[in-house]
């Protein structure tokens, strides 16, 4: 049975205690997007400033458990300064690490726990086209890999990423 140390890695607790890119940005030029996890009441408010097809700045407010908040903090550090295509690639890579694949039925639990980090998934269930951008390294985010062993917490970890996805779409439209 997975233990607490699989879930609460030191780097996660560090981001929880000292969240990066915390605060608000002026709207406009930034876009404001909200995300909720109805299961446990986690909430994320994301301020996203996209300029010249690049995440020029982003900041985060909201409240929730250590997993949702540290994931948001790590996400902000990982995508700041990246191009929109790179950010989208990171979202895909992170969700793949959480065993969430975009091809529908092969969701969490359906893919025999492939926690591989290469984003290939190995199941053949993903659309297999060429990646739109080189996927930036997950870096600290790999610490969240242990969340996969605690299925109810996956939604906590992916909340900020789904919110980012919405924000990037809102900024593009």
């Amino acid at each position: 049975m997975p233990g607490l140390e699989d879930l609460y890695r030191e780097i996660i607790l560090d981001h929880y205690r000292n969240p990066r890119n915390r605060g608000e940005l002026a709207v406009p030029p930034a876009h404001r997007v909200e995300g909720f996890n109805p299961l446990c009441g986690d909430e994320i408010v994301l301020y996203l400033d996209v300029r010249d097809d690049r995440v020029a700045d982003l900041s985060i407010t909201g409240q929730g458990c250590s997993i949702s908040q540290s994931s948001a903090s790590m996400m902000s550090a990982a995508v700041k300064g990246r191009t929109v295509a790179e950010a989208k690639a990171l979202i895909r890579a992170f969700k793949a690490m959480m065993s969430i694949h975009e091809a529908g039925l092969d969701g969490p639990g359906g893919s025999d726990g492939d926690g591989d980090l290469d984003g290939q998934g190995g199941s053949g269930a993903e659309p297999d086209g060429p990646p739109a951008a080189e996927t930036p390294p997950l870096g600290d985010l790999e610490a969240l890999q242990g969340v996969v062993k605690f299925p109810v917490r996956i939604k906590c970890a992916t909340l900020s990423w789904n919110t980012l996805d919405q924000g990037l779409d809102a900024a593009a439209s």
């Binding site: 879930l7 446990c40 986690d42 929730g64 458990c65 250590s66 917490r153």
Partner: peptide, 12 residues
């Protein structure tokens, strides 16, 4: 401390 984190450690 968020209730999710409390209950996760209590589960242990």
């Amino acid at each position: 401390i968020h209730s999710h984190d409390v209950s996760q450690v209590l589960d242990e």
